[in-house]
């Protein structure tokens, strides 16, 4: 991938969010339980919100990385992969989502490392941090509900 401008990077990021939304919508159509279909529709809506935010940035909005470091619970790193399918449970959906966000985080981070242009690097890092925030949200939800410590 060779990016020449911030605009190109944002176009790429917008397309990624769009792909993710379509992926979640396709899962919403597959799963048997209505409550899980709603989970995937919600995830798709979130991706479209991210897309809208990126389009806003492209049209002159600001895009600054969050001032504080985003916590990494590393759950996405430790849990095994799940296979998307009609019987997915909510914990499975969370694992899938956190791993997708983690992959996006890694991609933007790698792109930041590979570019020498400070402006482009800053954009990649800001995108990476956004993905890290999304991942943290899923990790916290998983952590609170799956790791109950007891029953």
């Amino acid at each position: 991938m060779n990016f020449q401008s911030v605009g190109e990077i944002l176009d790429f990021a917008v397309a990624k969010e769009e792909q993710s939304a379509q992926f979640y919508d396709s899962l919403a159509a597959q799963v048997r339980q209505e409550s899980m279909a709603e989970v995937f529709r919600e995830l798709a809506r979130e991706e479209l919100q991210h897309k809208a935010k990126l389009l806003e940035v492209k049209q002159g909005g600001t895009f600054q990385p969050a001032p504080e470091e985003v916590a990494d619970l590393k759950i996405a790193e430790y849990v095994v992969d799940v296979e998307p399918g009609p019987e997915m449970s909510y914990p499975d959906a969370l694992i899938l989502a956190m791993k997708m966000e983690k992959a996006a985080f890694k991609l933007y981070n790698d792109l930041a490392v590979s570019t020498k242009d400070a402006v482009l690097r800053g954009t990649f890092l800001a995108l990476a941090q956004e993905e890290a925030r999304h991942k943290l949200r899923f990790e916290l939800e998983y952590d609170r509900n799956v790791h109950q410590d007891d029953y």
Partner: peptide, 10 residues
């Protein structure tokens, strides 16, 4: 609620 939870680690 009798379905055991696992951590889904290797």
């Amino acid at each position: 609620a009798g379905l055991p939870m696992f951590m889904k680690i290797p």
